[in-house]
Simulated scan of single mutants.
Amino acid sequence: MVFTSRAGGASSSPYDSFNLGDHVGDDPDAVAANRERLARILGLDDIVWMEQIHSHNVTVVDGPQPGPVEATDALVTTQRGLALGVLVADCVPVLLADHVHGVVAAAHAGRLGARNGIVSRTVAKMVELGAQPGAIQVVLGPAASGRHYEVPAEMAADVEKHLPGSRTRTEQGTVGLDIRAGLVRQLMGLGVTNIEADPRCTIEDEDFFSYRREGTTGRQAGLVWLP
Rank of each mutant, 00 (worst) to 15 (best):
Leu163Tyr: 02
Pro164Tyr: 12
Val139Ala: 15
Gly165Met: 11
Val138Lys: 07
Ile179Glu: 02
Val159Tyr: 01
Pro199Asn: 09
Arg147Trp: 09
Thr202Ala: 15
Ile195Asn: 13
Gln186Arg: 05
Thr168Trp: 05
Val159Thr: 10
Gly165Cys: 12
Arg185Leu: 13
Pro142Phe: 08
Asn194Lys: 04
Val127Ile: 15
Ala135Phe: 04
Glu171Thr: 14
Pro199Arg: 09
Ala153Asp: 11
Ala157Glu: 13
Pro164Met: 11
Ala153Leu: 05
Leu190Met: 10
Asn194Tyr: 05
Ser145Glu: 04
Thr168Val: 12
Gly134Phe: 00
Lys161Cys: 03
Gly146Arg: 05
Thr170Met: 08
Arg147Leu: 12
Pro199Val: 15
Asp178Lys: 02
Gly189Gln: 05
Pro152Gly: 11
Arg200Gln: 15
Gly130Ala: 05
His162Arg: 09
Val184Ser: 05
Val138Gln: 05
Thr202Asn: 12
Pro142Gln: 11
Ile136Gly: 10
Cys201Phe: 00
Ile136Trp: 02
Met188Phe: 04
Met155Leu: 11
Gln137Ser: 14
His148Ser: 15
Ile195Cys: 10
Gly141Asn: 13
Leu190Glu: 09
Arg180Ala: 12
Ile195Gly: 10
Arg169Gln: 13
Ala157Cys: 06
Val192His: 03
Arg180Met: 11
Thr193Ser: 06
Leu183Pro: 02
Gln186Pro: 03
Pro133Thr: 08
Thr202Lys: 14
Leu190Lys: 01
Thr168Ile: 09
Ala197Leu: 10
Leu183Thr: 09
Ser145Thr: 08
Gly173Arg: 08
Ala144Lys: 11
Val184Cys: 07
Cys201Arg: 03
Ser145Ile: 07
Gln186Asp: 08
Gln137His: 12
Leu129Arg: 09
Pro199Gly: 03
Glu150Ile: 11
Thr202Pro: 07
Gly173His: 09
Val192Met: 00
Gly130Gln: 04
Ile136Leu: 07
Ile136Asp: 10
Ile136Glu: 04
Thr170Val: 08
Leu177Ser: 03
Gly165Phe: 07
Gln132Thr: 07
Ala181Ser: 15
Leu190Trp: 00
Gly130Ile: 01
Met155Asp: 02
Asp178Arg: 05
Ile136Gln: 12
Val184Met: 04
Pro142Val: 14
Glu196Phe: 14
Leu177Asn: 01
Leu129Gly: 01
Gly173Ala: 06
Gln172Asn: 15
Val151Glu: 09
His148Tyr: 14
Gly176Cys: 08
Glu160Leu: 05
Ile179Tyr: 00
Gly134Ile: 02
Asp178Tyr: 00
Val138Tyr: 01
Glu150Gly: 01
Thr168Arg: 04
Gly141His: 13
Arg180Gly: 05
Arg200Trp: 12
